[in-house]
Computed example of a mutant assay.
Amino acid sequence: MLLLLAGTVQTGVQAETLAAYGRQCAEQIAAIPAFSCMAGQEIPITQDGKPVPPQPAPATCDRPSLLPQVDAQSQCVPGSRALVLRDDKTAQISAICRKQVARPAGSPLFDEINVISHSLKDGKTCWFTAKAAAPLREDRGIDGRWVPSPSLLPRQPQPASPEGQRPLPAEKVWLSPREVAWSQPACISCHDSGPFMYSPYIAQTTQLPGDPFGFYQPKAIGEDFKKAWARLNAFGITTRGNTCTACHRMGNMNSCQVALQQSTGNAPQAGGNAWSRRFPQSHWMSPGNLHSQAQWNEQFASSLQQLAACCADPKGPGCQVVDYGGGSRSRP
């Protein structure tokens, strides 16, 4: 049984429909195929390197989800799945099917589904979310066996699954653009460095597209996103010769305020256990950290301090701001 949660939205303004928003995304980026969450790669949940059983959800784990999940049993609920629906020279489309309530192994029920569609040509990005109704329960949720596309071209039909299962109408599954755009935290607040954000949680899979320095326009499509995020302007921060931003951009919102500290051992991750707080796993930037702590400090500590200072004052001495909109470019 599929149930949805209505989010807090702005009223009194004509809302853009899911069909209209999805059509723009399909025309300007790419159509999103219908998909099965069950075809995705399961995201492991471990404690001290050992997989946990599907139930109950542990309070802490080695690599917790970094997405704030107020209604979840913990940041370490087993059974979430990730899949890349497209990744080529034109477009990248990624989906993650989240479980926030522990269920038996193999259950096709999920509590939230997120899809990001991104154009490599000009950086335009679209955002889609489905949510199960509160209160979340083990015996109900979003049926992930065949999820309808939220973004089709005109007159393009919703296909059946290989087993012949017909999907529900898209508007019965996906939240409206207004609900997604006005929800908190805003997608762009966390996805401020680019459309796809690295974390130890998702990095356990191979299902993460990468475009660390490409064009990025997170609110170029959809009137609700333009209005809701009008005062949220994602831009990058760097300094000359910075060893951190040699590999990726540093966004000015969540990346500066939270991820910069969490990824370098200076702030705990919600749901992280003692193992996650010990070096080297406490310092998950750079990915695959094989340094000793002394080596890490030698290579990154100064760059980290410079970035922290520029996050606090992007106009400070030596700080450079990188605009994403029509292509990355630095301005003093």
Rank of each mutant, 00 (worst) to 15 (best):
S263L: 12
P44D: 03
F225A: 03
A186S: 13
C97V: 06
Q69H: 10
A186R: 13
Q281H: 13
Q204G: 06
R63S: 08
W127G: 05
Q28S: 08
E112R: 13
L304R: 10
G265Q: 07
Q261N: 14
R155M: 11
A20Y: 09
F235E: 06
P44Q: 02
L83G: 10
C310R: 03
Q261E: 15
N273F: 06
G164Q: 06
D224N: 10
V101H: 00
L5R: 14
D122W: 04
E42V: 07
L208D: 04
S292E: 05
W284F: 14
K124N: 10
P159T: 08
H291D: 15
L3G: 14
C76G: 03
S199F: 07
M38G: 04
L307T: 03
S94N: 13
T11I: 12
R98M: 15
P51V: 01
F279H: 06
A34G: 09
Q281I: 15
P177V: 00
S149L: 03
P167M: 05
A312K: 14
A234F: 04
W127D: 05
G194V: 09
F110W: 00
V173K: 03
L18F: 05
R145N: 09
G7T: 14
V13A: 12
C310I: 01
G164C: 06
Q69M: 15
P135S: 08
Q158H: 10
F279V: 05
L67W: 11
F225H: 05
H118C: 01
K99L: 03
A181E: 04
P157E: 10
P68M: 02
G194S: 09
L304V: 02
S282A: 15
I45D: 02
H248Y: 07
R103E: 01
Q184F: 15
P212V: 00
V258G: 03
S119I: 00
P314C: 04
S282N: 12
G79R: 02
P56V: 07
P53N: 01
L2W: 11
G40P: 09
Q75T: 06
F300G: 04
T11Y: 12
Q257N: 14
G164V: 04
V147D: 01
P314Q: 01
P148F: 08
R23G: 11
D122V: 03
P44H: 03
R86G: 03
A246R: 13
F215C: 14
D143A: 07
R98N: 12
V322G: 01
V101K: 01
D224E: 15
L85C: 02
L304F: 11
R155V: 11
Q28E: 11
G194L: 09
G49C: 07
H191R: 07
P195S: 00
G271E: 01
T239C: 10
